[in-house]
Structure formats: structure tokens, C-alpha cells
């Protein structure tokens, strides 16, 4: 479980997160949704510790992350996996080296054990034959899948995904969504996904939080989102003409 309480964050006097309190549940795919510029990426990066909140607390299970020292935070970070919007694979390293890096630095496993673990993670994301490729040789979907493999290689307890579907076609997006959802269930991870893709919301969303202008505007599940009495949320959810037509059909 990850919980944040009364998080405030501003940059150069501009408030980006305004009194955010949310509890993300273990073993569930938690989604943060919102328009571009609503503050969801800042929220995710604050939760993961890349930004320091101006005030408020973040808890990883019962541990208050915000009050930990640098060394203590490093211990928790070994339980954290993150998938960045662009993949953030190390350009100078092959797929195999990218996935293996955390094992090299933080485990005393033998060569064979590391190889086996990397092979397992790459086969889990259906990339068994890409070991020697460099990130520049991969498609967008493959980059995301390598990023997922790297994120799970250390058996994380918490998984953060920043717009994992951005730049992908709808079919590949579904593959990535299902992969993340499957991994969440398989390993009982607390997963938090940032997205503005409504397909993802309806496909894998179990707990959904809507962020608007840096504030938590709505919280619920994917069934509730369709019938929420919230103008800003409805505007976001039913932004496309097709979605509007679908809703009016449902209402009729």
C-alpha cells in the first residue's frame, strides 16, 4: 500500500499539487488520470521520491518515506520499479545490460543466476530474442516492454508507470496494459499508473483518481467513472465524440 497525505508541491511559486491525499491499494492497478498539465506526472514523481514535496507525508506500507534519510530511502528504492514515459533505457547499453544493471549493482548473484533472471524477465514481456539489441534499434512498444522487464527484475513491491501507452498504437497499448496488469496480479505489487488514455482506464483500472488543476477531483472505480456527477471528470472522460455518443446510448 502507498499512501500520501496532504501533499503540496510548487515550482517557482506556482502550485502544482494542492493538498493531495490518496491511498493506493496493494495488488491493484491504481490509475491517476487527468488532462495534460494537471499535475499527475509531478504527483507520480513526488510519490516515487524524484521530487520532494513542500509539505505532506508519503507512506510505503507503514514506513514514512518523506522522513527517511538518503541511505534509508535507497533501501526502499530497491523495492521500487518505474516505467518512464519514454522508456528511459540507457542508450549505451544493450537490452540485456539494461535489464541486468540493478542485479549487477545490488545483488551477489552468480553470472548464471543473473542470466536466468534477465532471461525470465525478458521472456515475461515476450522479448526473448532481443538481448543484444540497443534501444535505438527497438520499436516504441519494445522499449516499453524492456522498461517493464527492467522494472520487475528486482522483484519490486511497488511499480510506478508514467504514461506507459504514450506514443503507442491502440493494439500495442492494450498489450502493455495487460502486461502491467498481469504482473501486478502475479506478484501482488502495488501499481500506480499515470495515464490519460480512457482505454486503459476501462481495460485495467481498478482504483481511479482524477486530478484536476493539481487537486484530487474524484476517486472511484471504472464502473463509477461513467456515472459520476462531476462536470470536469465528465468533460475529461467523454471528451471524444464517440464517447459522448456511447454515453447517450447508455443513458437511453
Amino acid at each position: 500500500m502507498i499512501r500520501c497525505e496532504h501533499i503540496y508541491k510548487s515550482f517557482d511559486g506556482r502550485t502544482v499539487l494542492d493538498d493531495i491525499s490518496i491511498e493506493f491499494e496493494t495488488g491493484k492497478t491504481n490509475l491517476i488520470i487527468g488532462r495534460s498539465g494537471s499535475g499527475k506526472t509531478v504527483l507520480l514523481k513526488t510519490l516515487v521520491g524524484l521530487h520532494e514535496p513542500d509539505s505532506g507525508n508519503i507512506y510505503f506500507d507503514d514506513t514514512c518515506y518523506t522522513s527517511l534519510s538518503f541511505a534509508e530511502r535507497k533501501r526502499i528504492r530497491k523495492d521500487v520499479g518505474m516505467i518512464f514515459q519514454g522508456g528511459a533505457l540507457i542508450d549505451a547499453s544493450t537490452v540485456y545490460e539494461n535489464v541486468r544493471l540493478p542485479l549487477d549493482l545490488f545483488t551477489d548473484s552468480s553470472e548464471a543466476e543473473k542470466r536466468e533472471r534477465v532471461d525470465f524477465c525478458l521472456s515475461r514481456v515476450e522479448l526473448s530474442n532481443a538481448h543484444d539489441l540497443y534501444p535505438s534499434e527497438l520499436s516504441g512498444g519494445m522499449i516499453k516492454r524492456v522498461a517493464i522487464a527492467r522494472a520487475i527484475v528486482m522483484n519490486p513491491r511497488y511499480l510506478f508507470c508514467d504514461e506507459p501507452n504514450s506514443g503507442l498504437d491502440p493494439q500495442t497499448s492494450i498489450v502493455i496494459d495487460n502486461l502491467i496488469h498481469g504482473i501486478t496480479k502475479e506478484f501482488g505489487i502495488t501499481t500506480i499508473i499515470n495515464t490519460h488514455d480512457m482505454n486503459s482506464v476501462m481495460e485495467i483500472g481498478e482504483k481511479i483518481v482524477y486530478i484536476h488543476n493539481g487537486r484530487k477531483w474524484w476517486e472511484g472505480d471504472k464502473e463509477g467513472i461513467l456515472f459520476a456527477d462531476n462536470r470536469e471528470l465528465n468533460d475529461f472522460v467523454f471528451a471524444s465524440a464517440m464517447a459522448k455518443r456511447a454515453k447517450s446510448n447508455i443513458m437511453r
Partner: peptide
């Protein structure tokens, strides 16, 4: 610098490196 703007440095930090 490229590693910074493409979030590769953030990725290393998240891994605890």
C-alpha cells in the same frame, strides 16, 4: 545532458543507484 532530459538519470536514481 541527454541522459538527464530523457529521464535516464531519473531511472538510475529510482533503481537506487
Amino acid at each position: 545532458g541527454t541522459m538527464r532530459i530523457t529521464e535516464q538519470i531519473d531511472a538510475l536514481e529510482i533503481m537506487g543507484i
